[in-house]
C-alpha cells in the first residue's frame, strides 16, 4: 500500500514548486518541455500504479495513451463532439479497453504478462497504422483544445495550458493515491504478494487486476487526450511499443512503487533527451548506458536511492519528533 513519508512530501513540494516556477518564467520552448514532462508524468503514474503496486509490468501503456489520443481526436474531429465530451469519452473508452486487456491478461505472470500486453499494444498500433479512417501513417490533425474561456482561461496559450496540465497532474496524483489506499488498492498489493492467499480469502483475483488496470488505463487515456490537445496532431507513432518501453524506463529510472520517483524520472528523461539530442545524434546510446547503469546499481531508481540514503534517517528523526510510535513500512522494492 502507498504511504506518504516526510521525504515524499518534500519531494512533491519541490516538484510542484519547480513546475510552477518553470510555468511562470519559462520561454516558449521551456513551456513545451514542461508540458511534455507533465503528460509523461501522468502516464508513468498510471504505469507505476499497476507495475509498482500490482506487479503488472505492462508494455501497452504507450498504446493505451495512443488509444486515448485517437479517441479524443475522433470524437472531436470526426463526430464533431465538443472537446469536453470527447475528453470524457476518450477516458471512458481507454479505461474500458484497458479493463478488457487486464481481464484477459490476468492469468499471465512475469514475462508472459509483459509479452501479452505487448501483443495487445502492437495490435492497436497495427490497426491504427493501416486504417485510412485514422489517417494511417500520416496521422490526424485539426484537434481542438478544451474551451475554458467561461472560467477565464485561454488554453490556446502555452502558459495557461502548462498550468492546466499541472493542475490535472495534481488531481491525477491524488486520485492514484486514493485508489491505492482504497480497499481495491490494498487487495491489489495483496494479490501482488500472494495470489493464492488472496484467493483463499475469497477474493476474485482477476477482477481486482482488471479493475485496477482499467483505472490505470483511464489515466493513460487522459494523458493521451492531453497530449493530443498539446500537439494538436496525432500519429500512430504514439502507440508504438517503444513508447511503452520508454514509460517503463522512466518508472524504473525514478523508482518503482514510489509514485513520486517516476515523476522525477519523467523530469530526468525529458530534460536529458533534449539536452543530449542537441549535442549528438547518438543520444540513444547515452540514455541506454544510463539505463543499464541505474538498473545494474540495484538501487530502486533515483528516488529509491535517495530514500535508501537519507530517507530512512530523515523519517526516523521526524517520526521521533511528531509521533511516539515509529511506523514500519511494508515495502518490497
Amino acid at each position: 500500500m502507498f504511504r506518504h513519508t516526510p521525504l515524499r512530501y518534500i519531494a512533491l513540494a519541490l516538484l510542484a514548486a519547480g513546475a510552477l516556477f518553470q510555468a511562470a518564467t519559462a520561454g516558449y520552448f521551456g513551456l513545451e518541455i514542461l508540458i511534455e514532462i507533465l503528460i509523461l508524468a501522468m502516464l508513468v503514474l498510471a504505469l507505476d500504479m499497476v507495475a509498482g503496486f500490482g506487479g503488472m509490468v505492462s508494455l501497452c501503456h504507450g498504446a493505451l495513451m495512443g488509444v486515448g489520443a485517437y479517441a479524443f481526436a475522433t470524437f472531436g474531429g470526426i463526430l464533431g463532439l465538443t472537446p469536453l465530451v470527447s475528453l470524457v469519452g476518450a477516458i471512458a473508452l481507454t479505461g474500458a479497453t484497458a479493463w478488457v486487456i487486464g481481464a484477459v491478461c490476468a492469468r499471465s505472470h512475469g514475462i508472459y504478462f509483459i509479452m501479452a500486453t505487448l501483443a495487445f499494444g502492437q495490435m492497436a498500433y497495427s490497426y491504427v497504422f493501416q486504417t485510412p479512417f485514422f489517417g494511417g501513417d500520416d496521422g490526424m490533425g485539426g484537434i481542438e483544445r478544451l474551451d475554458l474561456t467561461a472560467l477565464g482561461i485561454d488554453l490556446t496559450d502555452s502558459r495557461s495550458f502548462a498550468l492546466f496540465c499541472l493542475g490535472v497532474l495534481g488531481l491525477v496524483y491524488l486520485a492514484t493515491v486514493a485508489v491505492l489506499r482504497s480497499g481495491l488498492g490494498r487487495s491489489l498489493t495483496g494479490v501482488m504478494h500472494s495470489e493464492q492467499r488472496m484467493r483463499a480469502l475469497g477474493l476474485t483475483v482477476w477482477r481486482v487486476k482488471a479493475d485496477v488496470f482499467g483505472l490505470s488505463g483511464m489515466i493513460a487515456g487522459l494523458a493521451g487526450a492531453l497530449s493530443a490537445m498539446h500537439i494538436m496532431y496525432i500519429s500512430p507513432g504514439l502507440l508504438d511499443w517503444t513508447v511503452s518501453g520508454e514509460a517503463l524506463v522512466v518508472v524504473i529510472l525514478g523508482g518503482l512503487g514510489t509514485l513520486v520517483g517516476p515523476m522525477i524520472g519523467a523530469v530526468a528523461l525529458v530534460v536529458l533527451k533534449h539536452e543530449l539530442s542537441a549535442i549528438t545524434p547518438y543520444w540513444h546510446l547515452v540514455v541506454g548506458l544510463l539505463l543499464i547503469g541505474v538498473v545494474m546499481s540495484r538501487a530502486n531508481g533515483i528516488f529509491g536511492w535517495i530514500e535508501a540514503q537519507i530517507g530512512a534517517r530523515l523519517d526516523k528523526r521526524l517520526n521521533d519528533i511528531t509521533r511516539p510510535q515509529p511506523t514500519e513500512e511494508p515495502r518490497d522494492a
Binding site: G27, Y28, F29, E32, I33, E36, D137, D138, G139, S227, I231, Y233, I234, S235, G237, L238
Partner: peptide
C-alpha cells in the same frame, strides 16, 4: 521523423530562436 518531436522543435525554432526561414522535413507525417 516523429511528428510530436518535430512540432516541439519547430516551435523552438520559430518562437525562441526566431528563425527567418525553415527548411528540411523528410517525413510526410
Amino acid at each position: 521523423a516523429k511528428p510530436p518531436v518535430a512540432l516541439g522543435k519547430a516551435k523552438k525554432l520559430i518562437l525562441q530562436d526566431r528563425v527567418d526561414v525553415l527548411s528540411g522535413i523528410v517525413s510526410s507525417g
